[in-house]
């Protein structure tokens, strides 16, 4: 059973000691990693995914439940407590979604008996995350970016039951972000988002700030930010409403703005 994961600080890009020496993630935490492009966000979650042991350029170390991770985690992906989903993670199999999820569930053999239950649950989870419903018969390779991301998250959450899920800039892929965070909160896991999205950052419990390859600070979302998060969501909704209208070929008029502003 995994109940915590720890990052022990290493070195920044210029070799200087990383200012934040320890971060401890506990089950149920939703965290964000923020920082300018090139600051080292991806490097940080890669360190986590690889169970870095002072053997990556950052010299960071990762502990699970306070101890060095068991080698089994890396040897067998079925025991790996971490799933990493990036903008580039894709499905290569052209099997229909239903068939693939069934195969995957069967491999996690203890559940071989109720594959249909897991299939339905995974699909309905994914379909709450994406605006374009995924059909059982769609081929995996024909899914859109948003559908792929949604299915990856659902598969990791429900079929793999992975306790730690890392998401690298998935917000651009057309996932319902509030819905995602709301759904994910129901599962007691550790979710770590690399994000540029204020909405995700402020809905997280805390955000890790990365600068020049090093973690410079950790900010817990405070009372004011919690409240402000709701406003951000509203602003964001207005923007996506505008985006939709533009997409479907409408004009932006004073009248239509009156409805949403």
């Amino acid at each position: 059973m995994v109940d915590s994961i720890t990052i022990l600080g290493g070195r920044g890009r210029d070799g200087s000691e990383e200012p934040v020496r320890v971060i401890n993630f506990k089950m149920g935490d939703i965290a964000s990693i923020v920082g300018p492009t090139g600051s080292g966000k991806t490097t940080l979650i890669n360190d986590i995914e690889l169970f870095a042991d002072a053997n990556t350029p950052s010299q960071r170390r990762i502990l699970i439940n306070g101890n060095p991770p068991s080698p089994e985690f890396r040897d067998n992906p079925a025991f790996n407590p971490i799933a990493l989903i990036t903008q580039h993670t894709t499905f290569l199999s052209d099997l229909p979604v239903g068939e693939f999820l069934t195969i995957h569930t069967k491999i996690r053999s203890e559940r071989a008996r109720n594959t249909d239950y897991f299939l339905q649950k995974t699909l309905s989870f994914a379909n709450q995350l994406t605006g374009e419903p995924i059909m059982v018969h769609s081929k995996m390779t024909e899914l859109s970016g948003g559908q792929t991301r949604a299915l990856l998250i659902a598969d990791a959450t429900i079929i793999c039951e992975t306790p730690i899920i890392l998401l690298d800039e998935v917000e651009n892929a057309g996932i319902h972000r509030n819905k995602a965070i709301e759904l994910l909160r129901e599962y007691k896991k550790i979710f770590i988002f690399v994000t540029h999205d204020p909405r995700i950052a402020l809905l997280s419990d805390y955000r890790i700030v990365v600068k020049e390859g090093a973690i410079s600070k950790v900010l817990f979302t405070d009372e004011y930010e919690h409240k402000f998060a709701q406003k951000v969501s509203k602003l964001d909704d207005i923007l996506s409403e505008l985006r939709n209208r533009i997409r479907v070929g409408e004009r932006i008029t004073n009248d239509c703005l009156a409805g949403i502003l």
């Binding site: 992906p77 993670t89 195969i103």
Partner: peptide
């Protein structure tokens, strides 16, 4: 690094 956890597991199996 190029594929999903799900497909990694299937490939291994």
């Amino acid at each position: 690094d190029r594929i999903s956890q799900a497909e990694r597991e299937v490939f291994r199996a």
